[in-house]
């Protein structure tokens, strides 16, 4: 036992400074950042739109929910300078340039019930396994979600938040609804990853039943492919604490 403790102490503090400091370069590689449109947007967007494999780049801006961070648009004028921890209460709010930088992405507080702890249940409805692994990664010492009161639970009966990953396939719909019904109130649903939001690279797939909000009421959307652990942690933190304008970290 003592050897274990020595071993752990010798490695020093690994845990991120979140939520008291912005993410560093290690925590957020280039593809973790939302692509931004440098001005003039009217000239950049039409040039970059044809290379986007998901059609996320439109004449009015970038639909961040559909963006899979493939970086193809970066050689056509867009820049990887957007925030890492985007999140909004509707997919429509996740559009840049309008309304991304200026209005801080927020979530309506689903309930005043989550103040000090949050129990999270992960449900996979058709993911590639990357989102699952990033969400499970929150438990490792680098993120240590438990220090913030965020715990993963093995049963929906104990859960406050349903964390949905993957493109919702028709086969998983009954299980998704039953899992949501099994959760006690107050409860919230957080959808993470481009697949759960707008289908990502698999948009238009006939096996999928999008949008997710047709099946369960979604409180928060977190874009990314996959969103880095810090973005997921930040989303859960904000769901737990309510809107940042009312109460800071």
């Amino acid at each position: 036992m003592s050897t274990w403790i020595q071993q752990a102490v010798a490695r020093g503090r690994l845990t991120t400074r979140f939520p008291w400091a912005p993410p560093n370069e290690e925590e957020a590689p280039i593809t973790a950042h939302a692509p931004e449109v440098p001005p003039p947007a009217t000239r950049t967007l039409p040039l970059a739109a044809p290379v986007c494999p998901t059609g996320a780049i439109e004449s009015e801006g970038v639909r961040q929910g559909a963006c899979i961070r493939c970086a193809r648009c970066l050689s056509h004028g867009l820049t990887p300078t957007g925030p890492v921890d985007l999140m909004a209460s509707s997919i429509a709010l996740l559009r840049s340039p309008s309304g991304l930088r200026h209005e801080p992405p927020s979530v309506r507080s689903p309930s005043p019930g989550f103040r000090r702890s949050l129990h999270v249940f992960l449900i996979d409805v058709g993911s590639c396994n990357a989102c699952n692994r990033e969400a499970l990664g929150l438990a490792n010492p680098y993120y240590d979600s438990q220090r913030l009161g965020i715990f993963f639970t093995n049963s929906p009966r104990h859960a406050d938040v349903l964390l949905v990953v993957g493109i919702p396939t028709r086969e998983m719909l009954p299980s998704l609804s039953r899992t949501y019904e099994a959760m006690p109130g107050p409860k919230a649903v957080v959808a993470i990853g481009a697949c759960a939001l707008e289908g990502g690279i698999f948009h238009g797939n006939p096996h999928a039943a999008l949008p997710l909000s047709d099946h369960v009421p979604v409180d928060a959307y977190v874009p990314g492919c996959p969103p880095p652990p810090l973005a997921i942690l930040s989303a859960l933190w904000r769901v737990m604490r309510g809107p940042p304008s009312r109460e800071g970290p």
């Binding site: 370069e25 973790a32 970086a71 996959p226």
Partner: peptide
């Protein structure tokens, strides 16, 4: 996690997409 971060640093994406 350290290997994932190294992959992110070397290839720009943690999962090598």
């Amino acid at each position: 996690e350290e290997v994932l971060r190294l992959a992110g640093w070397a290839f720009g994406h943690r999962w090598l997409f």
